[in-house]
Every structure is written in C-alpha cells, then in structure tokens.
Amino acid sequence: MNTGRIDWVKAIITIIMALLGVVFLLPFLWMLSASFKPETDVFKYPIEWIPRTWRAGFNYESVWFGKANFALYYWNSIKVTLLTTLLSVVVSSMAAYGFTKIHFRGRNTLFAIVLATYMIPSEATLVPLFIMFRSAGLYDTHLGLILLGGFSVLGTFLLRQFFASLSDEYIESAQIDGGGHIRIFTSILLPLVRPAIATYAILRFIWTWNDFQTPLVFLNSKSLFTLQLGMNAFADRNGAFYSLIMAASVSAIVPLLIIFIVGQKQVIDGIAMGGVKG
C-alpha cells in the first residue's frame, strides 16, 4: 500500500465513475436548465445547458404564486408530513418499547399479529379504507392522511431491534429507584435510541412527503392538496408549458434533496441497516 501518494488507477476509475454519474443525473440537469429558460428555448437542439436567455424569475413566480399556488401545496405537505412523522415515531417507539421491555400476557401473539399485517400491502386496503373514511368523515381531511401514515408497522420493526439491544439493567436499576415504565421510557431509553429514531424519522418524512397514492385516493379539495397532488394537477393543466412544468418539478424535488444531502448519513445507514423501502 503506497500511503500518501495518489493511486493513479483509482483516480482514473473515479473520473470514469464521475462521468457515468453525470450521465445518470442528466435528467435532473436538463430539468434544472429548462426551468430557467423561456418556453421557446426548451427544446432547442443542441441543448443549451446554460440558458442564453434567462426567464427563471418569471417561471418560478408563475409556479409559486400563480394559479397553481405551490406555496399552499408546500404548507399542506409540511403540515401533513411533520404530523405523520411525529405520530408514527411516538406510536412506533412506544410499541417497540412495549414489545421488548415489558413482560405481559399475549405479548408474542400480539407481536405475531402485527408482523403478519406487514404482509398486507397498503394497496389492498385502499378501497375499504376509502369507504370507511367517507362514513367516518375522515375523507378529504388532512387528519385522515395523518392517521393512515402514522400507524405504519415498519417503524415498530426498525426500532424494536434497537430497544432489544439495550440492556435490561437500565430498567431494573430504574425500577429500584422507584421509576415507572413511563419515566424509564421517556427519560432513560428514548435518549439512548435517539440515533435510531432520527434515522426512522428522516425515512418516514421522505416517504410521506413523496407519497402520491394515499393523497390521490383520500383527498379531493384543491385547497388541501399536498405537493405531489398539486404537481400532478399542475402538469395535467399546463401540458404544453414545459418550462413552467420543469420549474414546478424543481420545486417539488429540490427541498427534499437538500434534506437528503444534510441527513445523508442517517438515510443511507437507515436503508442499509433495515434494508427497507416504502
């Protein structure tokens, strides 16, 4: 191993891989470039990667404050996503604690039931849930979406592994000091599993933010649309205004990309660890 010196083979492979990476990302670069252009320049060939005429201000303003009102969609998405993530983290971590650290009758049976429901795809329950939500007044409400996303069993599985890895001694010594399960859970164990919770929270945030299927079925009013629904409606209505559609796409993609790049360690570790998706 030649330390300190550049390994030329490795450097060349890195450059080749970087070029491949650029090709892989070309759709994003094209989208970004088109979103800055006047409509007439979008399909010019050869492609002007750096626009000769800039119309970025006009394009983005039309998307954000025109008829489409992306500002509202953003607010709706932020609200639904944050509350779903919060609910899911609370419910999942409580269940994970209960299933690993408290002994009660029927624990294994109940866990087996939860595990079995993981086999049922969310697509299989869309129709009955739609009917149930209509009768319960939850159809076309943000509360309905939050409830649907907040009880996903995936978080319980992910967090259970972490709670299981914590020694029972924490609990025993706390119990000697007279602490109940609620105290032990909130003030001793939760801080210890914080990294795992952060990982799950970021994943849940991303999945909820990008979810299209649930809002499509359970929302109807434009004023309640999440970003994904708003984006879809915008693309349907402005079929021929490609520069605007690209500005909308950039608006839909970039904020989450920033979250991803900031929290990439959590996301990548989370995906690698649970090997999970969806």
């Binding site: 994003f28 094209w30 984006m231 909308a248 796409s249 990309l257």
Partner: peptide, 11 residues
C-alpha cells in the same frame, strides 16, 4: 429521493 410525480413528468 425525488418525488415520483416530478420524475415521471420530467421523463
């Protein structure tokens, strides 16, 4: 990580 809707529209 990107929204499926936006990705589909771009493609």
């Amino acid at each position: 990580i990107s929204s499926v809707v936006a990705v589909a529209v771009v493609w």
